[in-house]
């Protein structure tokens, strides 16, 4: 098993229906995936709402434990992480980026305080200038700088800039893996391309692996190396992104691909009748 950065082996997660019902929901049902440490890549998980992609991401972030199966990061089983020190060491290497940057920052709190707090806690820095340097380096790698961000509040920035700050914050501890859950779906169209390009750039320049979670097949095609398509908690198809999306084999992947609206009025798919196999 040497050489695996992340090894997700046959994980299952079930939720019970609550006090009054016996119903159990299996959110993730036997999913496996493996990222190679030597080859940083963008691994995309595609699925509709309820497909279990966010539950899987939360398990990889060690926020919830799998009901069955194991997740190993750098050879360490996540279930064995108990002490706060081991937990911190894990969090340094694996960092999240969330969907809505306006919700991930407290509107009353200055943005640089997030960066400095992360520098202190995650990167273990104590010297003020070292912390500022680390924050500045991280901001520069996303196309911003500390001079622009210092003293500013979330509402003063656009969604795209704010998402860059969120990515910079995640980069301060020099992680090996970023988990980006729908990082562009709340961003305006004119800024979306630059965030997607940034993820690709981070993979190439900083050798960070990225698990990119989305329901948008078009951006998935644009940036991913490998892709996994999920439905009802199961991976229905996985492989090289271009191969899978150019010629999907599973009926559900084919349906997903057919449902993508082409941004071309000459090739409309909605106006025609009977094209959809959706019941």
């Amino acid at each position: 098993m040497s050489g695996a950065l992340l090894d997700v082996d046959n994980v299952v997660r079930t939720y019970s229906g609550g006090l009054l019902t016996r119903r159990r929901v299996t959110a993730v049902d036997g999913v496996s995936l493996r990222l190679d440490a030597a080859r940083p890549e963008i691994f995309t998980i595609v699925g509709e709402s309820g497909s279990g992609k966010t539950t899987l991401a939360r398990m990889i972030l060690n926020m919830i434990a799998p009901s069955a199966g194991t997740i190993r990061f750098d050879g360490t089983d996540l279930a064995t992480i108990r002490s706060s020190r081991a937990r911190l060491a894990f969090m340094k290497r694996v960092q999240p980026i969330f969907q809505n940057p306006f919700e991930s920052f407290n509107p009353m709190k200055r943005l640089d305080r997030y960066l400095f707090a992360t520098g202190r806690r995650m990167a273990g820095l104590s010297d003020t200038t070292a912390i500022a340097d680390a924050a500045d380096t991280a901001l520069r790698s996303v196309g911003l700088s500390l001079a622009e961000i210092r003293g500013r509040y979330p509402h003063e920035l656009s969604g795209g800039q704010l998402q860059r700050v969120a990515i910079a914050r995640a980069l301060i501890s020099k992680p090996a893996l970023l988990i980006a859950d729908e990082p562009v779906s709340m961003i305006d169209a004119s800024l979306r391309a630059s965030i997607v390009n940034l993820l690709r750039d981070l993979r190439d320049r900083l050798s960070v692996s990225i698990i990119y979670i989305t329901h948008d097949l078009a951006t998935a095609y644009y940036i991913s190396d490998r892709i996994m398509i999920m439905r009802h908690g199961k991976a229905v198809e996985a492989g090289d992104a271009r191969t899978v999306l150019d010629d999907p084999q599973h009926p559900y992947s084919q349906l997903l691909k057919q449902s993508v609206l082409s941004p071309d009025p000459q090739h409309r798919t909605v106006g025609r009748q009977g094209g959809s196999s959706h019941a």
């Binding site: 920035l157 656009s158 795209g160 800039q161 305006d188 169209a189 004119s190 800024l191 979306r192 391309a193 630059s194 965030i195 997607v196 390009n197 948008d216 097949l217 078009a218 951006t219 095609y221 644009y222 271009r242 999306l245 150019d246 691909k257 993508v260 082409s262 941004p263 071309d264």
Partner: peptide
Amino acid sequence: SLPRLGDSAPKKGLDGAP
């Protein structure tokens, strides 16, 4: 800048903010 399935040519983002 619209992403299209089957197209991975680089796309440029727009500088500045709304």
